[in-house]
Nucleic acid binder design. Structure first.
Length: 906
RNA sequence: GGGCGGUUAGCUCAGCGGUAGAGCACUACGUUGACAUCGUAGGGGUCACUGGUUCGAUCCCAGUACCGCCCA
């Protein structure tokens, strides 16, 4: 006998273990050898732990995977993690600091990397066990890590081939430099943060005239948000059509504090509307200025070191073309070694002292911050490795245009195109130790040899130099996304031509959040198409962002984070999963509230108790039972309902309509199966028609089995448990059982009849409640004017009707005076309760109904009187309105009769 | 500034060219032999606003307002 309530916490672990024992997670488990269906997990961070976004992402994948597995496909859900270069290095460095061990640099690269591996072994990857708590049915035996040997080999091969194809190159460009982590980061790792800053207006004295603050013709005003960069200015730009300045183009100014002579150039970049219309150009410290500098062939002067401190002394770029002066000496003395923010203050003060500070304006603007370090990012001139993303993007764009890969919802394709069409060279080198060290070696003269390993590089060097030569490997590592960009094929064994690769590539669908379209999807598309000559996935499903119940993004600093593990603990993994699925509507974010999770926990309990009822009444699946053989109307009806539910769930899942699918099974189980079917069969189960009982038990078992299957992708644990409990002795686990097929069980006649029964019961309950007939009282019912069909229905469902409507008896006869009257199609249902009836209240109730029906008749009349409607609307619509009108008129007539009869009592 | 999305019941959200829905919350009643993590019944909506298309618009189109996200 089942317990009274379902206790998820105590059962989930056991059920998961049973799946493992059955080897149900393995690729191809339960398959009938059919079509392959594969998903690669978006690899979570090795440092990560499960948050709500993961819970949603993986719930959706697991739903798809369980669904397709039950449909007999050869399913692989490939799990694994990425090594998260910066994040992991930070974690381990912090740990070293906390335990007061020597830092990374003192330790040296080799020992440090060893230490990171040690950390990974001990405490990395706990997220994978958390995914198991969620019930994820990945093929855990195939877990991969981006730093595994095989995947690392793939990374080297890709690097070498792209280099040889000219698609990877080294270049000196501005990068986003993180002065705290001391590495380049990609555009995507930069967050623009709105801050309240200032716009400082500086007067730059023109060459050859005496500066006079009172005389604007002796200087040009430039505005800047970053005064300290003025030390590296190499031009002032004005708009070519800005008449205020046309006469100055080609002239020079003398850069204050430094004494450098720099030109005034015409460039469309400067906006005449902004500030003074003139803008200082610092090519080495600003992305826009960098472009301007290239157009005008300006020198690039870097005045900062890697930590963001001012370097003037010994800075050849800075001192070139500048003759020594006392001012320069003072500037150098005051600013050398100053942090960029201190230098900013100092520069402003020095300008002010000289009468060169024209104005300070408040200015709210976006400042780039490193998403890991949180510090202000510095555009910084360095040598880095780049991927020619523009070239790789072309076929990746084409693949989506031609439909080889499609996005759901489709609107995300625009985002993808926009990004891909404006893609910049992808900086892939990182100044870190944890990651794939770049397979490039340098000779003594700086010649670079790119090879998959050192010995190959040495051979190349020997060929080049004519003798064996010492080489040093590039210190840098590759961007983590470079390796996760290979994920859909590197995890399947590439570069080896494995069976798995042949079978499961391209993958079927990729499920992820929109924030990762650029980071990851774009890169997988580019690299997948280039190396596999085929898209990595046919469909990309972009899901919602999980917010808190007020719609705020969850964040640690706001303190509004809901831990999925807490919810699993409290309500069970099934409830959490179902909640996420039920709220996953395309194109809308999820505002998660625990009340909702609690509600779906209750749903699991409801199902549990329905199963308990089935068990108590010996309702169980019967081998060889043919649902088409059912003779009882109620059984034919529920078979058809279960069929409709199956179709709805199946179609919804095929179209990634998770909320519809969840809604359909919820509605079927609770509001059809529990609310009506189980109630309708109670008289049968308690009666003594053994044949009817046998059929009903078998049908209840059959339908419940089907429902468990339909619900299984959403609530795998409780359904698996009930499957075992209800079908004692069966060998097959639910997870590997076949998905319900369409059997053609719908029966219109049964539907109509049960629909009538339901309306009969509902109408009587409603009137009883409204008229305050005590809930427990059994009352007699007199039916007038029933046609043959209704009479037959009354006869065959009498017991059920009496039970559900709390009736003492049902008899045909004249409608008595002083009765509550209900119009059900052609018949009048009367409850003779003369003693307790309140004639005024009952009249009011009937009048209200008459009003309602009259209003409807009025609307339909107006519609049908409209000639244009009758002539232009489709035939069936017009016909429908006519039918509705005549039905409404008949109902109105009966209600009026009822009212007359009632008032005759007075 | 550019792009995208949203605005439907108290809340969270479905839906959709032809009777406006769900869950939760709320109100009343209820220990009816599965279930109080439940049952029965009920109240509650100018579908943001303004135009247009249409026989007919919550739905399609245009604009406005407000909210949110992404990119500068």
């Amino acid at each position: 006998m089942l317990d009274k309530t379902y206790q998820p916490a105590s059962l989930e672990g056991t059920i998961f273990a049973a799946w493992e024992d059955a080897n149900a997670f393995a690729a191809g488990a339960g398959s009938d050898g059919g079509q392959a269906y594969s998903i690669v997990i978006p690899p979570p961070n090795v440092t990560g732990s499960l948050h709500m976004g993961h819970a949603l992402n993986n719930t959706l994948q697991d739903i798809l995977v369980r669904f397709e597995r039950m449909r007999g496909k050869d399913v692989l859900w490939q799990p694994g993690m990425d090594h998260a270069g910066i994040a992991t290095q930070m974690v381990v460095e912090r740990q070293l600091m906390e335990t007061q061990e020597p830092g990374r640099r003192e330790m040296g690269r080799e020992k440090f990397v060893e230490r990171v591996w040690q950390w990974k072994g001990e405490s990395g990857g706990k997220i994978l066990s958390q995914l198991k708590r969620l019930g994820c049915s990945c093929d855990w035996s195939r877990e991969r890590f981006t730093m595994d040997d095989g995947l690392s080999e793939a990374v080297r091969k890709v690097f070498v081939e792209l280099y040889e194809a000219g698609l990877i190159y080294k270049d000196k460009r501005l990068v986003n430099w993180d002065p705290k982590l001391l590495t380049a980061i990609s555009d995507l790792e930069v967050e623009q943060v709105e801050v309240n800053g200032h716009l400082w207006h500086f007067r730059y004295p023109l060459e050859g005239v005496d500066f006079n603050a009172e005389d604007p013709s002796t200087y040009i005003v430039v505005a800047t948000t970053r005064p300290e960069t003025m030390l590296g200015d190499t031009a002032v730009a004005v708009h070519p059509e800005d008449e205020r300045y046309t006469n100055l183009i080609g002239n020079h100014i003398i850069l204050p504090l430094v004494g450098r002579r720099i030109p005034i150039v015409a460039d469309e970049y400067s906006d005449p509307e902004k500030g003074s219309g003139a803008v200082k150009i610092t090519p080495a410290h600003d992305f826009n200025d960098f472009e301007v500098g290239k157009r005008h062939d300006l020198p690039m002067i870097n005045i900062l070191d890697i930590e963001g401190k001012v370097v003037l002394e010994g800075n050849e770029d800075f001192t070139r073309d500048v003759s020594g002066s006392s001012e320069l000496t003072q500037t150098t003395r005051e600013l050398q070694g100053q942090d960029r923010f201190a230098a900013r203050k100092a520069v402003v003060a020095m300008m002010d002292e000289r009468g060169l500070l024209a104005e300070i304006e408040d200015n709210r603007h976006a400042v780039p911050h490193g998403d890991r370090s949180g510090v202000v990012i510095e555009p910084f001139l360095t040598d880095q490795w780049y991927v020619d993303a523009k070239t790789l993007a072309k076929p990746a764009i084409e693949a989506v245009r031609s439909g080889q890969t499609g996005f759901t919802p489709k609107t995300w394709e625009n985002t993808y195109f926009h990004w891909m069409e404006n893609i910049q060279p992808w900086c892939i080198s990182r100044q870190l130790w944890w990651g794939h060290q770049i397979p490039a070696w340098y000779g003594p003269d700086g010649t670079v040899f790119v090879a998959t390993d050192e010995s190959e590089a040495k051979e190349k060097a020997k060929a080049h130099y004519g003798e064996a030569t010492e080489l040093t490997q590039d210190e840098d590592v590759l961007d983590t996304w470079f390796s996760s960009g290979l994920w859909p094929f590197s995890t399947l064994g590439w570069p080896d031509e494995t069976e798995a690769l042949k079978r499961y590539y391209p993958t079927s669908v990729l499920v992820t959040g929109f924030d990762i379209i650029f980071f990851w999807i774009a890169r997988m598309m580019m690299l997948g198409i280039h190396f596999m000559e085929e898209v990595p996935f046919h469909r990309v499903y972009i899901h919602a962002l999980v917010r808190d119940e007020k719609g705020q993004k969850m964040s640690k600093s706001k303190g509004n984070v809901i831990d999925p593990l807490d919810l699993i603990e409290q309500y069970g993994a099934d409830a959490l999963r179902f909640t996420l699925a039920a709220m996953e509507a395309q194109g809308r974010d999820i505002k998660l509230s625990t009340a909702r999770v609690e509600g779906y926990r209750n749903f699991a309990t409801k199902l549990w108790n329905a199963a308990r009822f089935a068990e108590m009444n010996e309702c169980a699946p019967v081998d060889g039972f043919d649902p088409k053989s059912a003779t009882l109307t109620v059984n034919r009806w529920i078979a058809g309902e279960s069929e409709r539910a199956a179709v709805k769930v199946t179609e919804s899942l095929e179209n990634f309509r998770f909320n519809d699918a969840a809604g359909a099974i919820y509605h079927f189980l609770w509001h059809i199966f529990c609310d009506w079917y189980l109630e309708l069969i109670k008289p049968v189960l308690m009666g003594d028609d053994e044949d009817a009982k046998r059929e009903t038990r078998a049908m209840a078992g059959y339908v419940l089995d089907r429902a468990l299957k339909l619900l299984h992708p959403f609530m795998p644990f409780v359904t698996e448990e009930l499957w075992a409990k209800l079908g004692e002795g069966r060998e097959q686990i639910l997870m590997l059982s076949p998905w319900p097929r369409h059997e053609g069980l719908e029966n219109a006649q049964a539907d109509a009849e049960i629909d009538w029964v339901i309306r009969f019961v509902t109408e009587i309950r409603s009137v009883r409640a409204e008229m305050n007939v005590p809930a427990g009282a059994r009352v007699p019912l007199i039916v007038t004017g029933a046609n043959t069909e209704s009479q037959e229905r009354l006869a065959s469902h009498g017991e059920t009707l009496k039970r559900l409507a709390r009736l003492e008896s049902i008899e045909a006869g004249e409608t008595p005076k002083g009765a509550l009257q209900i119009v059900l199609e052609e018949a009048i249902l009367a409850l003779p309760l003369a003693e307790i009836i309140d004639v005024a209240a009952e009249s009011a109730r009937l009048r209200k109904e008459i009003d309602k029906v009259s209003k409807e008749i009025g609307q339909l009349d107006a519609k049908l009187a409209n000639e244009k409607f009758v002539s232009r609307a489709p035939e069936h619509v017009v016909e429908e309105q006519r039918e509705r009108k005549s039905e409404a008129e008949a109902t109105a007539a009966r209600l009026n009769q009822a009212l007359d009869r009632l008032q005759a009592v007075l």
